[in-house]
């Protein structure tokens, strides 16, 4: 039993890991078909993972409503939003529009989800500006460099900036395409080396935290 509970999952990880690592080096239609199928399979399994997340959300808010905790009314609003969207979504067969005409699901998307999402991210502009005011003081050489780069990029992204300092657009583009790209590339190389090392550790059973805790 301990083999089925502990060693078998590690064996599955090892076998699938080695098969799909090797798949890259086999230029055969069967190998390509294996990759296509695996991608589809992962999408299907990922769909079931959503059930876990949604159930957890349901349980948390159901407990709040049952115990009449502070703010339980907002949990009711969340339920109403979720169930209402699901109802109109299934009624419209998951389509936002049919032959160019918006469905009820499309209405929810256009007049509820888009404004809520847009405004939620838009208010971050105020908080970012406030954080910048507090942290962007040129107290050191590094902070000054960061401040100057941010100001140039911000000026280069709007017509007013380019009107005031005509060269700001070009400098901004150069910072983004050359300096920023070089740093992103270095970070990407570092992160990738880490990802490859972690993948090897997972395949060979050194890293096994993904199996979760538990006695067995």
């Amino acid at each position: 039993m301990i083999f089925l509970r502990r060693q078998m999952p590690l064996l599955i990880t090892m076998i699938t890991g080695l098969i799909f690592a090797g798949q890259y080096y086999v230029p055969h239609p069967a190998s390509e078909q294996l990759l296509t199928s695996a991608t589809k399979w992962l999408q299907i399994i990922g769909g079931f993972a959503l059930v876990l997340g949604v159930t957890s959300l349901f349980q948390v808010h159901a407990a709040k409503i049952r115990r009449k905790e502070a703010g339980w009314g907002y949990s009711m609003v969340l339920y109403a939003g979720m169930l209402g969207t699901m109802a109109v979504g299934w009624w419209a067969n998951g389509k936002e529009s049919v032959e160019g005409v918006s469905t009820a699901f499309g209405w929810v998307y256009n007049f509820m989800m888009v404004p809520l999402q847009g405004t939620m991210f838009a208010i971050l502009a105020f908080f970012i500006a406030s954080a910048a005011y507090r942290s962007f003081r040129a107290r050191s050489r590094e902070a000054a460099v960061l401040l100057i780069a941010a100001v140039i990029v911000m000026m280069g992204r709007v017509p007013l900036g380019e009107y005031l300092v005509p060269i700001s657009g070009d400098i901004s583009q150069w910072i983004l395409n050359v300096l920023n790209a070089s740093v992103r590339r270095a970070i990407l190389i570092g992160v990738s080396l880490g990802a490859v090392a972690l993948s090897f550790k997972i395949i060979f059973g050194v890293e096994r935290s993904y199996l979760g805790g538990g006695k067995e």
Binding site: M82, G84, G89, W90, M113
Partner: peptide
């Protein structure tokens, strides 16, 4: 805020 979470989850489920 809660409506946003509800609608987003409902949309993702559908």
């Amino acid at each position: 805020e809660n409506l946003y979470v509800g609608v987003s989850v409902g949309y993702t489920i559908v």
